[in-house]
């Protein structure tokens, strides 16, 4: 099955890339964009037997840096 891990910067952690994207949107004439935060989407193809706990462990040990990032795990039915 497919698993999507959404990794985002924690609130309060400065995101220079998000800010640059926001400025670029402004430059293109889009108004009303107050904030932009850039994150990561990691897609895993895993056996159905892989447990939620194991996925959680993967996120904590490698996929996200818990000092600066949050993560959300989403299982996608095949």
């Amino acid at each position: 099955m497919k698993v999507r891990v959404h990794v985002s910067l924690k609130p309060g952690v400065l995101d220079p890339q998000g800010r640059a994207i926001q400025h670029s949107l402004e430059g293109l004439g889009f108004s009303g964009v107050h904030d932009v935060r850039a994150g990561k989407l990691i897609e895993l193809e895993v056996d159905d037997s892989v447990t939620d706990d194991a996925l959680d462990d993967m996120c904590r040990k490698l996929l996200a840096n818990m000092v600066i990032e949050n993560y959300r795990i989403e299982r996608i039915a095949a």
Binding site: L14, P16, Q17, A20, V67
Partner: peptide
């Protein structure tokens, strides 16, 4: 060292990118 947990904190993209 920060990623391994031997030192606290993290190193982010430079503020001026």
């Amino acid at each position: 060292l920060t990623e391994s947990g031997l030192l606290p904190g993290a190193l982010l993209r430079n503020s001026a990118i």
